[in-house]
Design a protein around this nucleic acid. Structure first.
Length: 564
RNA sequence: CGCGAGGUAGAGCAGCUCGGAAGCUCGCCGGGCUCAUAACCCGGAGGUCACAGGUUCAAAUCCUGUCCUCGCAACCA
C-alpha cells in the first residue's frame, strides 16, 4: 500500500497565556490523535505547531511582565512545550513566529502577493493615543457603532449588532487603556485584494462541501454572501514583522497575516526547503488544520485567500473546526477560575491517558460540549476499567493461571473447530480495526472511541458466552485454549487501535503484559490489528490493572489541585 | 427581523447528510456468572423524538411556521 504524505497543523496559540483544556480539546489533542493514527497506519506524517508571537496583546503582556518580548516568548514557549509533553502531545516541532525563518518566509510570501498584483494601498486614518503613545487598532479602541449606536463598539466590529466597518467609521473613539480621546492621524496601509480572489476561493470552498464539517462550510459561505472586501494587512505597532516596502518602514504586518504563514515557516524550521517543497508544494501531500471555531474564518477564508494570491503553496485538504468545550456548564474563564488550566496538570499524578480518553469521548466535534468531573470519573471507571482494562485482565489472567502464560496453539490448530461465537469474534477482529481507522481518518474521534469500547465489549461478551473457566473445570482445555487464543488476538488489536488515544497505557500493556516487541503504535502496525496471527510459541506475562478506579476522594483531590 | 448553537426516556448524549420498526452510557428494577479492579453478561421499566401544519405508502430525519433554552465585554480554541 502506498504511503500517504500528510501535514498536520494545530492552531498557533497566542503566546500570552498558557493553554487550558479547551485549547487541548480544540486542536492539540485531535491533531495528536490524528497524527498518531497515521503513523501507526504507516503514513508519512508531520505534526507542526507553535505560538503566535506577534500582535499588540503579546507586546503588552511582555511589557507587563517586565520582559523583552523575545525573552517573554522564549519562556512561554518553553512552558508550553513542557505542558505538551505532559499531555503526551507529540509535536514534531513546536516553535513560534518570532524566528528569523518566519520573518524570511513571511516577507517572501508577501512579496509574491505584491508581485502578483493582489495588494493595494489605501489612505486611511489611524487612531493614536497621545497619552499612552500607542497606535490604537481594532480592539484597543472603542466608540460609537456607526450601525446601531452602541457606545462600547470596537475599532473594527460592534459586539452588539455584529457589524464590521473600517476604523474611520467609529464615532468618538477612545483609548481602551486610559479612556482618553483618541486622535486621528492620516496614514497609508496595505490591503490584500480579497475581492479579486473571491471567485477562485469560492471554487475551492465548494469542492470541500462534503469534506468539511457542516458548520465550517456554513460559516465560510456567509462571507461570500456579503462579498469579500480588501482587507488591511498592516499595523502601526512596534512589535511584529516589518513591512518590506518603501514608505512603510515603520509598519508591521497584521498579526493574522503572518500567523498562519507560521505553519509554513515552522515546517521549514523542521526540515528546511526540502520539507516545505515536500509538504506545501507537493500536490500529493494532504494538509489538515485543527482549529477552534473562532479561527474558522482565518483558516477557511483569509489564509487560503493569501495562499491563492501568493500562488506558491497548497491549500488545506481539510479545515477541521472544533466547537468549544465548557466546564461544568460554564465557559472557561481565567479571571473567574473556571476550568482546568494546563500548568496545574504539570505536577499532578492524574492518569494522562485516562484524561485523554475522556476528552476524546467529549470532543466538541459538532457542537459545544461539557467537561464534568463526574463524567471523567464515570468514563474512567465504566469504560476504561470495566470494559477495556478488564478484558485484558481476564484474558491474561486465565492464560497465566491455567496455561502458565503459553497457549501453544495458533490459528491453524483451531480453524476447523469454530462455532458461531468464535466466528463472530473473528469477524469483529477482522473488520473493526479497519472501521475504527476510517473514523480516525474522517476525524470522527468520538465515534472512533465509542467503537473501540464496543470492540472491548464484544470481547467481554464472548468470554461470558464461552465461559472458558467452565471449560477448564470440565477438562475441555482444547476449547478453552481456542477461546483464549482468540481473546489474546483481540487484546493485541485493542492495544493497537486505542494507541492513538492512549499511547502510554497501551505501550505498557503491549510490552509488559502482552510481551510483544516494540510498541503498539509502531509504523505500519495498524494492519496487523485485524489479523489473527499470534505465534504458537508466544508467552504472555502476568496482568496488572491498567487503569486505577477513581473514587470520590480522588476526584476531590483533582478538583482541589486544578482549581488553583 | 443582530449572529450562532440547541430542544430525542430521570440525567448526559447519538441518530438527521442519503426518510423505512426509537438507540447508547449512567441511574433504577430483576436475573445470571464468578476468570476479572464488587469488575462482567442477560432481561425489564421509562419517550406523543419542543409544538403545529405540509410533502410522502412511510418523517426524529425533508419543507413551512410557532414556542422555548443557551452563548455572543474582557482573558479565550
Amino acid at each position: 500500500m502506498k504511503k500517504k504524505k500528510i501535514l498536520v497543523t494545530s492552531a498557533l496559540l497566542y503566546v500570552n497565556g498558557l493553554p487550558h483544556l479547551g485549547h487541548v480539546v480544540g486542536c492539540w489533542l485531535p491533531g495528536d490523535v490524528f497524527t498518531r493514527y497515521h503513523k501507526t497506519k504507516g503514513n508519512d506524517v508531520v505534526y507542526v505547531s507553535g505560538t503566535d508571537d506577534h500582535g499588540t496583546t503579546s507586546y503588552i503582556s511582555a511589557k507587563e511582565a517586565g520582559m523583552e518580548p523575545s525573552d517573554y516568548i522564549a519562556s512561554m514557549n518553553a512552558r508550553m512545550k513542557e505542558i505538551a509533553k505532559k499531555l503526551s502531545i507529540n509535536f514534531d516541532i513546536f516553535s513560534g513566529t518570532n524566528t528569523q525563518t518566519h520573518h524570511d518566509v513571511t516577507i517572501d510570501f508577501f512579496s509574491e502577493i505584491y508581485k502578483n498584483g493582489y495588494t493595494e494601498v489605501k489612505e486611511s486614518s489611524m487612531l493614536f493615543c497621545e497619552h499612552d503613545k500607542i497606535a490604537l487598532a481594532d480592539r484597543f479602541v472603542y466608540g460609537i457603532c456607526p450601525n446601531c449606536g452602541y457606545d462600547k463598539a470596537y475599532g473594527d466590529q460592534c459586539d452588539k449588532c455584529g457589524a464590521t466597518y473600517e476604523l474611520d467609521a467609529l464615532g468618538s473613539p477612545k483609548c481602551a487603556f486610559c479612556g482618553k480621546d483618541a486622535v486621528k492621524k492620516s496614514t497609508k496601509h496595505i490591503y490584500i485584494s480579497l475581492d479579486k480572489i473571491q471567485p477562485e476561493l469560492q471554487k475551492w470552498v465548494e469542492s470541500k462541501k462534503d469534506v468539511w464539517r457542516p458548520h465550517v462550510y456554513a460559516m465560510t459561505n456567509k462571507w461570500f454572501k456579503e462579498g469579500l472586501k480588501p482587507r488591511c494587512i498592516t499595523r502601526d505597532i512596534p512589535w511584529g514583522i516589518k513591512v518590506p516596502l518603501k514608505g512603510f518602514e515603520d509598519k508591521v504586518f497584521y498579526v493574522w497575516f503572518d500567523a498562519p504563514i507560521g505553519y509554513i515557516s515552522i515546517t521549514k524550521e523542521l526540515g528546511g526547503d526540502e520539507m516545505v517543497k515536500d509538504r506545501w508544494q507537493n500536490p500529493e501531500c494532504e494538509i489538515y488544520n485543527f482549529i477552534g471555531k473562532d479561527n474558522i474564518d482565518f483558516h477557511a477564508v483569509f489564509f487560503p485567500s493569501m495562499e491563492l494570491a501568493c500562488k506558491k503553496y497548497n491549500l488545506a485538504t481539510n479545515v477541521v473546526g472544533f466547537n468549544f468545550l465548557n466546564f461544568e456548564g460554564q465557559k472557561f474563564s481565567k479571571s473567574h477560575k473556571v476550568g482546568i488550566f494546563c500548568d496545574s496538570l504539570l505536577h499532578s499524578d492524574i492518569d494522562i491517558d485516562a484524561l485523554r480518553a475522556y476528552l476524546v469521548s467529549i470532543f466538541p466535534e459538532n457542537k459545544d460540549s461539557d467537561f464534568t468531573y463526574e463524567g471523567f470519573k464515570l468514563n474512567t471507571n465504566a469504560e476504561l476499567v470495566g470494559k477495556y482494562g478488564n478484558f485484558f485482565n481476564r484474558t491474561l489472567n486465565m492464560i497465566n493461571k491455567n496455561f502458565a502464560g503459553e497457549l501453544e496453539i495458533d490459528f491453524d490448530d483451531i480453524k476447523d473447530s469454530l462455532d458461531e461465537n468464535d466466528k463472530e469474534m473473528i469477524e469483529a477482529i477482522n473488520t473493526l480495526p479497519t472501521q475504527i481507522g476510517e473514523l480516525f481518518e474522517k476525524t470522527e474521534f468520538r465515534m472512533a472511541y465509542k467503537e473501540i469500547m464496543r470492540f472491548a465489549s464484544i470481547g467481554n461478551t464472548y468470554l461470558e458466552k464461552t465461559a472458558p473457566w467452565t471449560l477448564i473445570k470440565n477438562g475441555d482445555t482444547t476449547s478453552a485454549k481456542k477461546v483464549l487464543y482468540l481473546c489474546l488476538n483481540m487484546a493485541k488489536a485493542l492495544a493497537i487501535v486505542a494507541s492513538p488515544i492512549m499511547p502510554n497505557r497501551t505501550a505498557e500493556i503491549w510490552s509488559e503484559q502482552l510481551n510483544f516487541a516494540g510498541r503498539p503504535d509502531d509504523a505500519e502496525q495498524w494492519e496487523d490489528a485485524s489479523k489473527i496471527n499470534i505465534k504458537k510459541s508466544h508467552k504472555v506475562n502476568l496482568p496488572k490493572p491498567l487503569f486505577a478506579r477513581l473514587d470520590d476522594e480522588a476526584i476531590e483531590k483533582y478538583k482541589a489541585e486544578f482549581s488553583k
